[in-house]
Amino acid sequence: MDNLGLFLAILGAALAAGLSGVGSAKGVGLVGEAGAGLLSENTNMFTKVLVLQILPGTQGLYGFLIAIIVFTKTGLLAGAPVAMTWQQGVSVLAACLPIAVVGYFSAIYQGRVSASAVSLIAKKPTELIKGMTMAALVEFYAVLALLISFLAVNNIRLG
């Protein structure tokens, strides 16, 4: 049980990177499917589809960023883990949860909005900006979760 604190911190990092990564993969996959449908009829739309497909991928990056910060803070990245109490471990785990949970769901919902935007540009190719804006509004909440996780992880005193 000596390493329980460290284990919990790693669990937090794993959830942050894992859940938001899975959410992003689902979101990007959904937009990819819709994009393929459009491209099978009009290959000139590739750039527009790509822009929409990228959008749900950012949550995975946010989770990855928080995981790296946790690894840096706990000394795992340098190969010299710091000693942590279980309470500190729980704090790191809790700090990772906002981006893990919000990242997962927002990526899926953003994927749905982006896939719908693919249908929008299929009918009205000039409306890409509107589709992007609608998808970007979902991103806002992932950014808020990233900020909370970032501030919380940074302000936990370890060692």
Partner: peptide, 17 residues
């Protein structure tokens, strides 16, 4: 329903014509 993403996008593209 999301399994229809490819299909719906393709049909929307056809609706334009």
């Amino acid at each position: 329903k999301t399994d229809y993403a490819y299909c719906v996008a393709r049909l929307r593209a056809n609706e334009a014509y």
